[in-house]
């Protein structure tokens, strides 16, 4: 095992990596496929020991690693779960990931966890809370933290600002990085009828540290079509177009292909990543 002191942070390159899920772990460890970086879910490594941590150790020694959380529940009116945060802190210290992130959402109230990325009302009360929570996390971890915009299936009537105003203001005031999920921007633009391009234009260019891409499904049994952020399909053509626009605006940014449900063979994910990589390379060539 590596000693924590010998593990230097490996920055995440401005290239296209993939979300590494448990069913692909053994193949990745055995075959060491060419991939510029991997992202894994922080909570999968919250055990005290065992096979998952051993695998993380090996992935981390061969690839740049990003740790992406789904369970901090940053925007909950409950206090942050101190044990959760302490476990994350220990994990980050031990494995020194290139990036650490979680979502602009809530997931728990009154001690009950719903284990989902739930929508916040875009109010100053929620914004103030998110700012203080992100600052608390950055103080605890002693490093920059990234927050990600989520897909949503409803908005609240008492919203005081748009989603993009909320996100931009949060990132500005908390002094954190932004993990811009382009698929989520597109999904929400359809679900809530706003201009995805305006959303991108509102994002603080200098704060965008990472981009997520994933596939959505179309829920058609309702009165209006609803896009569901299912991470179960290839990236949609509209999302690729929006991604190209994002690269024009934010420059070459580390980009991640996420796939969680109906997980295909590793090759399919790597092929999606190659497609993103080609777009990044194209922007880099044009900038040169």
């Amino acid at each position: 095992m590596h000693d924590a002191s010998t593990l230097a942070t490996r920055p995440i390159p401005a290239a296209a990596g993939i979300g590494l899920r448990a069913p692909h772990l053994q193949r990745v460890l055995a075959e060491r496929p060419r991939a510029p970086w991997f992202e894994m879910h922080s909570e999968n490594f919250f055990g005290a020991g065992g096979a998952m941590l051993a695998a993380l150790e090996r992935v981390r020694s061969d690839y740049p690693l990003s740790l992406h959380g789904v369970g901090l529940s940053l925007g909950s009116a409950d206090a942050l779960d101190g044990e959760h945060l302490a476990t994350l802190r220990a994990l980050v210290r031990r494995y020194q990931p290139g990036l650490v992130s979680d979502h602009i959402c809530w997931g728990a109230i009154g001690g009950i966890h719903l284990n989902d990325l739930l929508p916040l009302p875009f109010t100053t009360e929620a914004l103030d809370l998110m700012v203080s929570r992100v600052q608390q996390v950055q103080d605890t971890l002693g490093r920059e933290f990234l927050v990600e915009n989520v897909s949503s299936y409803l908005t609240f009537r008492h919203a005081e600002m748009t989603e993009w105003e909320f996100v931009a203001e949060l990132v500005r005031r908390a002094g954190c990085g932004l993990l811009l999920d382009v698929n989520n921007v597109y999904v929400n633009s359809v679900n809530h009828g706003f201009d995805a391009h305006a959303y991108l234009r509102a994002m603080p260019v200098a704060a965008v540290r990472e981009i997520h891409l994933a596939g959505f499904t179309r829920k058609t049994d309702l009165a209006v079509p609803l896009l569901i952020d299912s991470h179960s399909r290839p990236v949609d053509a509209e999302v690729w177009a929006l991604y190209a626009e994002a690269l024009d605006r934010f420059g070459p940014v580390p980009t991640l292909i996420e796939w969680d449900q109906h997980l295909p063979e590793l090759e399919v994910l790597l092929a999606e990543a190659s497609r993103a990589e080609a777009l990044i390379d194209d922007r880099r060539a044009r900038a040169a």
């Binding site: 719903l114 989902d116 739930l118 299936y153 409803l154 908005t155 609240f156 009537r157 809530h192 009828g193 829920k219 309702l222 009165a223 209006v224 609803l226 569901i228």
Partner: peptide, 15 residues
Amino acid sequence: VTGAGLAPAARLQVY
């Protein structure tokens, strides 16, 4: 919850 073409209850039901 804003309805916007859907019953608010249907939106909550997705979650």
